[in-house]
Amino acid sequence: MSEESKQFLKSIVFQLNKEEYAMPVDLVGSIERMMHITRVPGTPNFVKGVLNLRGVVTPIIDLRSRFGFDDLSYTESTRMIIIHPNNMEVGLIVDAAYDVIDIPNEKIEPAPEVVGTERIEYIDGVAKLEDRLLILLNIDKVLSHESIKSLAK
């Protein structure tokens, strides 16, 4: 049993632009409903601002604008996934977050190469589970400062 479970990637699944994404669950601190966000001037437009998360000022990134999708007004199902990569604390706004699943490692395939896309760098791979297609995010790349700078230009 335990040997088998090692080959799973426990992931949180969230929805963005009608597609399903996944990231490792151990990065995730909590999932929050939308609350008041204070805009921070002079930051890239995908940084929505900061909010007070139980006394910690937490920056919030809108994944839609980070990935260049159309803006969509927030709905009842909009969630913020609070993650803690490398001593940071960042919240990601997603359309919905509803599932934690185990993705077997053998189901993970490298991301399909598409010519001329630079966005590919933050995708670790895709996983096909029955009829679902999950896109595995590389959070470090999503948050990396180089990408912030290049996007800000």
Binding site: V40, G42, V50, P59, N86, M88
Partner: peptide
């Protein structure tokens, strides 16, 4: 502002 947002003008 945390480690993510550094150097905000």
């Amino acid at each position: 502002l945390g480690n993510y947002l550094t150097d905000v003008f």
